[in-house]
Design a protein around this nucleic acid. Structure first.
Lengths: 343, 343
DNA sequence: CTGAAAGCGCTTACAG
DNA sequence: CTGAAAGCGCTTACAG
């Protein structure tokens, strides 16, 4: 039999005083006028009994759980795993607990998670929304549930969000390749209608367009998320075939880069001699890759922390205005995009 | 203003019936004899109002939160991150939520987490205990709080646990190296008094002893967890120096292997030609390592699932006997321990 | 077939 | 200086 936790009542009985008095003392309210002596006695007994307040009861009373619901798009992606950890740490600092789930890029799963977390009475949500969840987000907003979108957002729904400037980052990638002497630059992205992916693609297209003025066209392949392994291989075959095979590939995410590089290894191509590579985000998988990868590094730490801060502020001050943060990402130069002449 | 969630009372008012009746209908208790018509009406209204039961209130009433507290030793280690994910998935299937934290191998942090999770009224714990937490575990046990130790346990405290046979796994590693022709086999482990680490070391020592019968002695270096980077480098320098430098190294964990291999790369040594390697556990970091690593693969999936199953069983049946599971781990042969003559 | 009442453990405005 | 009472949203044994 699990022993019952000690409650205020147990302490009250022990000391011979009312539950209310114990509550006043233990919650340190200054406006209660409990005698010093009594207060000390109560505190001592509470300590010897190892009293821990029942947060469930506190939550029911206060309507606050000090819990944040976090929904990421894919927890098996180190990008999201890392940001989840950062959010967890920051939340803990601010005295919040995080309950999280992964939508695995599926709208139904996202809906299920939102309902589940709502029934657990989370005080607010941090969500990396996946395709087709616009209505879920709109609904949360309409219910005035505190909410911060992270990494992705819907331009048509006005919410708090913390994202990066994907267009600008993508521009940096393509410019780096161009400056290094590459010309036939392919891109492999997800066939995902969400804004962040469209912006990465737009950055690629416009930079190619602006620089080559139509003499060289963008060469983009979009991959279906649920069949990515096979399609990435086909995409690379495709980009490398024909009269003008690419000399560089820009991967729109780290997961695409991992799949792509494994296949490039299989083909016995050497990076960057045979083909230059830049990736959006990285991952531990590249720690031992023979050629350090040039990649976009998103300010994960700041993104996670800002999201938590904005959310907890909104929980505390519901009528605070909306906060919309767009951060810049850095290009980290490895050796996978070395200038052609120096290779 | 955040709108209040709809409660049983709202539905009761709407339908013109008592809260109790609504509760009976919505909790689907067969023994209540509410008329079909009324039941239907109530269910319809509940649906249109989008009623979600308040789990906080349910928990307070029932004394059950359907929540598991998970404490891992180091969430930044992919081994624990993976097992956390497996536990999360299995728990979700069984209708439990997981709240977790990382003790970062610190006893005080572990205590803090236990208290925190207890105050959140978790129904039970899954814990990867760190050094010096014996008394915390004993205390939980003494309070009859359902508990499963994972990956590590204390031989002196009788609890549920799910672990692997570290001694046997370690034996396999050393035998593999011996069979492949290596003789001067060093080991790098943590200076950690916990049983799992001692067993790995014992397996190493005894196998060396049994095979070489004293003609070659074990060559073990123990590393301080909090200064591991520097000490691993020194350890490798040490193992490679002297009259009889090692020709193989057994790393007792994946984190040690990562640190070690990076240094070995810096030294421009080639695996396995210059030095053979076997690691306990692996990680994504090795995905692109030029030489696929021979390593011990623990049955993560089974470990995580069994832990959840045992815990939830004990929550349901508190006087169930203790379950102690010791699984075997596999040796996965890569190329980092190739037989000497074939290299 | 339906409802009044007690109670889970806490907080807090109010009374004495 | 201290306590009785109401209430957070639910469940359930009991009465009618």
């Amino acid at each position: 039999m699990k022993k019952k936790q000690v409650s205020l009542k147990d302490i009250a009985n022990e000391v011979g005083v009312s539950i209310a008095t114990v509550s006043y003392v233990l919650s340190n309210r200054k406006d209660s006028r409990v005698s010093e002596a009594m207060a000390k006695k109560i505190k001592d007994i509470a300590k010897t009994l190892n009293y821990q307040p029942n947060k469930i009861a506190q939550s029911l009373k206060s309507g606050k759980t000090n819990t944040i619901g976090l929904i990421v798009a894919d927890i098996s992606n180190p990008f999201f795993a890392n940001i989840a950890r950062i959010i967890e740490d920051e939340a803990t600092k601010l005295n919040y607990t995080v309950i999280f789930g992964s939508s695995d890029e599926k709208a139904e799963k996202s809906l299920h998670l939102i309902e589940f977390l709502s029934s657990r009475q989370v005080d607010g949500f941090i969500i990396v929304p996946s395709e087709g969840t616009d209505n879920q987000i709109a609904q949360l907003k309409q219910q005035n549930i505190p909410l911060v979108l992270l990494d992705r957002y819907f331009p048509d729904i006005s919410t708090n969000y913390v994202v990066i400037d994907n267009f600008e980052a993508s521009t940096k990638v393509v410019n780096e390749l161009i400056v290094s002497g590459y010309e036939r630059i392919g891109m492999i992205a997800y066939a995902n209608p969400l804004y962040h992916m469209r912006e990465r693609i737009r950055g690629y297209r416009e930079t190619i367009q602006n620089h080559f003025g139509g003499k060289i066209s963008p060469n983009l392949v979009e991959i279906d998320y649920n069949d990515s392994k096979k399609q990435v291989r086909a995409a690379i075959d495709n980009l490398l075939s024909g009269e003008n095979p690419v000399d560089a590939v820009f991967f729109a995410t780290n997961t695409l880069a991992i799949l792509g590089l494994k296949y490039i290894d299989e083909l016995s191509l050497t990076v960057p001699k045979d083909i230059a590579i830049i990736s959006f985000d990285e991952g531990e998988a590249f720690d031992f890759y023979y050629c350090p990868l040039t990649h976009i590094r998103q300010p994960l730490d700041e993104m996670g922390k800002r999201a938590v801060q904005i959310l907890t502020q909104q929980i505390a001050t519901p009528d605070m205005g909306e906060k919309q943060i767009c951060l810049k990402a850095d290009l980290i130069k490895g050796k996978s995009s070395l200038a052609i002449y120096s290779s």
